[in-house]
Computed example of a mutant assay.
Amino acid sequence: MSKQSEASLVDLIDALLPQTQCRQCGHQGCRPYAEAISCGQADIDQCPPGGDQGIQLLADLLKLPAKPLNPAFGAQRPLQVAVIDEATCIGCTKCLPPCPTDAILGASKHMHTVIAALCTGCELCIAPCPVNCISMIPANTEWTKANADQSRQRHQAKNQRQAKVEAEKSERLNRQKQLLAKLNKGKTSV
């Protein structure tokens, strides 16, 4: 398979995934799972949020027989969203980095809240919370293709922003190292 057709297949698979970025499939998000499926390193039955419908869509695309969700990766259930008990929240910000779509708003030492319309129900914010103030409740809606597309865009934007911050940090450190090297060179030549 050519690189271009492999990339196209990854795009097609990724477009069928729910984009919750929950990592229940054993990969770091929907795109890495799509990449693993496309090269035969993962099976189509590992996505609980996609459930039976998602498995069927993947099976149809890849011309494979459908199979039930592998219970080792979790169980299919209705969409849930995170809620923060604002009275208990201490504003530690530990829930912010794992949120794949920046659905949590808050600042250090201030109460946080979840924008329900942006929450994918991934549950990645629960474990880092030191005061257990985050819980999951049933969503008032079904997860749609439009939700998945919005989630993919927000996740990509967050990844791009984080990469830019890391590149800027690396550049600053390199400039500091160069400056220190110049200063140290000047001291040794005196």
Rank of each mutant, 00 (worst) to 15 (best):
L16V: 02
C122F: 12
A36K: 12
A87F: 08
K169F: 00
L58A: 11
K164M: 03
Q80S: 10
G106T: 01
C39E: 05
I55S: 05
K177E: 04
P32F: 07
S151V: 09
H110R: 08
K3S: 04
C119W: 07
A116N: 06
V114R: 05
L124F: 14
L183W: 14
W143I: 11
N140M: 04
Q46E: 04
R175T: 09
Q24D: 01
R175C: 03
A163K: 14
K63C: 06
Q28L: 13
S8V: 10
R161T: 07
A34F: 03
Q24T: 12
H27A: 01
L64Y: 10
N174K: 15
C133H: 03
G29P: 10
C95W: 12
D52A: 15
G121P: 06
A82D: 01
A42P: 06
N147S: 14
I104Q: 05
L183E: 07
H155C: 09
Q150F: 15
C89T: 02
K158M: 04
L64N: 00
G121W: 05
E168H: 10
N174L: 13
I44Y: 11
D14C: 08
P48I: 08
A59Q: 06
A116C: 05
R152M: 10
G54E: 00
L62E: 02
E171Y: 12
S170R: 13
A87C: 01
A34T: 06
S5R: 13
S189G: 02
D43N: 10
A36R: 10
G26H: 01
A42M: 05
N140T: 13
P98K: 12
I44A: 01
L118E: 04
L96I: 12
D149E: 11
C30V: 05
H112Y: 03
Q162S: 05
T88Y: 00
W143N: 02
A87W: 00
S5W: 07
I90S: 01
I134A: 02
D43S: 13
E6I: 06
Q41K: 15
G121I: 08
N140L: 04
N132S: 12
T120G: 05
H155A: 15
A107D: 07
T113R: 15
L173R: 14
P78L: 13
K182M: 07
Q156G: 00
H112C: 11
V114K: 05
A117R: 09
D60E: 10
H112S: 10
I115D: 03
T141Y: 15
N174R: 15
S135Q: 08
A139H: 12
G91N: 02
D45Y: 01
W143A: 06
P100A: 04
